[in-house]
């Protein structure tokens, strides 16, 4: 048991990597989700089809397949492009590959959440904003955005919780997150169960903290709504 406690700082460093990866990925996913939702609701057929293919294909393929494809395939693609431009060999590190993959995957899920949120904003309010002479950007910032956050928050929260669990897969492409480190610690102490259990409990902790934060945010963004 003493042995296991000695390894805790090692595991906690990995937990930090997991949290960083999750935050970086969710930032990318939010950007892609906003772009996707805008494309899906745009008047252009081309944009709508691209966004449609993006969300359908991503949601139809397991994240692990996409991760391996982007990590190994992306490496080759980047270097073929780099080579033709005369650049030196570029190596994608696992953190970048993990962030790109998870962000790319969850961008598709966020697209659906944000699209629903935007659609839930009453059309008349947007028209009223336009009638006041606000520019499209101003309408978005003052009217659409604050209200869509309220509607999109519950499904955004769900996506975030799933995303946190998905980060475990990056251990497969060699990123030293807490699952990877639990494997190493478990191997050298011959106590794999102990370490994987600790990691599972840390995941539960992250989820629990997120749920508290999300319900606080939901209350914050629903301040203007009357509930009977």
């Amino acid at each position: 048991m003493q042995n296991a406690i000695d390894f805790m700082p090692f595991i906690l460093t990995g937990a930090l990597v997991t949290v960083q990866l999750a935050l970086a990925s969710v930032a990318l996913a939010i950007v892609l989700g906003m772009l996707g939702a805008t494309a899906k609701l745009s008047g252009s057929l081309a944009l709508r089809s691209v966004a449609g293919v993006y969300t359908t294909v991503i949601r139809g393929i397991p994240d692990l397949v996409l991760m391996l494809l982007i990590f190994y395939g992306g490496q080759i693609a980047v270097n073929e492009i780099g080579h033709s431009l005369g650049l030196a060999y570029i190596e994608i590190d696992p953190f970048t590959a993990g962030t790109l993959t998870i962000g790319f995957i969850f961008g598709a899920y966020m697209t659906e959440s944000f699209r629903g949120g935007i659609l839930a904003v009453p059309r008349g309010e947007i028209e009223a904003g336009r009638a006041f002479g606000m520019s499209a950007v101003l309408v978005f910032r003052r009217i659409t955005l604050p209200q869509m956050v309220r509607h999109a928050l519950p499904s955004f929260g769900n996506n975030w919780l799933v995303l946190v669990k998905t980060t475990a897969l990056v251990s497969v492409i060699g990123l030293q997150d807490m699952v990877f480190r639990a494997g190493q610690a478990g191997g050298s102490t011959r106590q794999p169960f102990t370490f994987y259990l600790v990691v599972a409990l840390i995941y539960l902790l992250i989820t629990a903290v997120s749920q508290v934060a999300l319900s606080k945010a939901e209350r914050r963004f629903n301040v203007g709504v009357r509930t009977e």
Partner: peptide, 22 residues
């Protein structure tokens, strides 16, 4: 709560790698 809150990969490792500890 446990099985919905933790990654499937960790659950699989707990069973595949973990059980041999006992």
């Amino acid at each position: 709560y446990f099985f919905r809150g933790t990654p499937l990969l960790v659950q699989l490792f707990l069973i595949y790698h973990g059980m041999g500890q006992f």
